[in-house]
C-alpha cells in the first residue's frame, strides 16, 4: 500500500491522493431468496417453474424474465443436485495479499437436471483440469449442514455446496445443453 500512503512523498509535489470509500449496507433478503436458502440448508435445490412457459429458473427469481409474470411458492419445484458442465474456465490464482487459493482450479457453469438455466461459478472437485468437457456429468458435494449459508441477495448457491465431482455417468449429449453457452 506504499503507493497510496500520503506520507511517502514528504516534500515533493503531491501527485496522488488516497481515497478510502467505506459504505455500510443493510441487505434485506427477499422472501423468494429466503425460501430458497431454507431449502438449501435442508439439502434441496429448488426453482420456480413458470406457469406460462414452463421454464424452471434456479435460483428462483420470483418472476419469469421471459414471460414477465410473477412466480410464487406455488410454482416451486425441487430439482436434482446433479447436472452437466456446459462451460468452464481454469483460474490461476495470483498470490496477492489475502489470496486463499494456491493451485489452478476450475469454475464451471452447470445445467442441473430439471432446470432450464445454468448455475455459474461452481467449483469442480477431483476432476483433472484437462478432462473437463461440456456434457461432463457432475453431482453436488454438499457442505456440512451448519456451513450452508445462502447468498443473502439470492444469487447462486452460497456456501451450501463445496463443489461438484464427476458422477462417472456417460456424458450428456450435446442436444441437452447446446442452448446454454454459459
Amino acid at each position: 500500500m506504499t503507493d497510496t500512503d500520503p506520507q511517502v512523498a514528504d516534500d515533493g509535489p503531491v501527485r496522488f491522493m488516497p481515497q478510502l470509500i467505506s459504505l455500510d449496507y443493510t441487505v434485506r433478503t427477499n422472501p423468494v431468496a429466503a425460501a430458497f436458502g431454507e431449502a438449501l440448508a435442508d439439502g434441496r435445490i429448488t426453482g420456480h417453474r413458470c406457469p406460462s412457459c414452463s421454464l424452471v429458473f434456479v435460483p428462483p427469481k420470483g418472476f419469469c424474465p421471459i414471460c414477465t409474470i410473477e412466480t410464487t411458492s406455488a410454482d416451486e419445484v425441487v430439482i436434482e443436485d446433479r447436472g452437466m458442465v456446459t462451460a468452464w474456465t481454469v483460474l490461476t490464482p495470483i498470490q496477492y495479499h489475502g489470496q486463499q487459493e494456491r493451485k489452478d482450479y476450475a469454475l464451471a457453469s452447470i445445467l442441473l437436471v430439471g432446470a432450464d438455466g445454468t448455475v455459474g461459478q461452481q467449483r469442480l472437485i477431483d476432476i483433472p483440469l484437462d478432462e473437463i468437457r461440456p456434457g461432463l456429468m457432475v453431482e453436488a458435494v454438499w457442505a456440512a449442514p451448519e456451513d450452508r449459508v445462502a447468498d443473502d441477495r439470492g444469487y447462486g448457491l452460497g456456501t451450501a455446496i463445496d463443489g461438484w465431482k464427476a458422477t462417472g455417468e456417460p456424458d450428456a449429449p450435446a442436444s441437452e445443453y447446446e442452448g446454454h453457452t454459459l
Binding site: 503531491v14 496522488f16 470509500i21
Partner: peptide, 18 residues
C-alpha cells in the same frame, strides 16, 4: 463495503494540495 482508490491529481489540484 470498502474500496481504496488512488486518485491522480493533475497540475492544479496537485499544486493546491501540495
Amino acid at each position: 463495503m470498502e474500496l481504496l482508490y488512488r486518485r491522480s491529481l493533475g497540475p492544479v489540484v496537485g499544486a493546491f494540495l501540495t
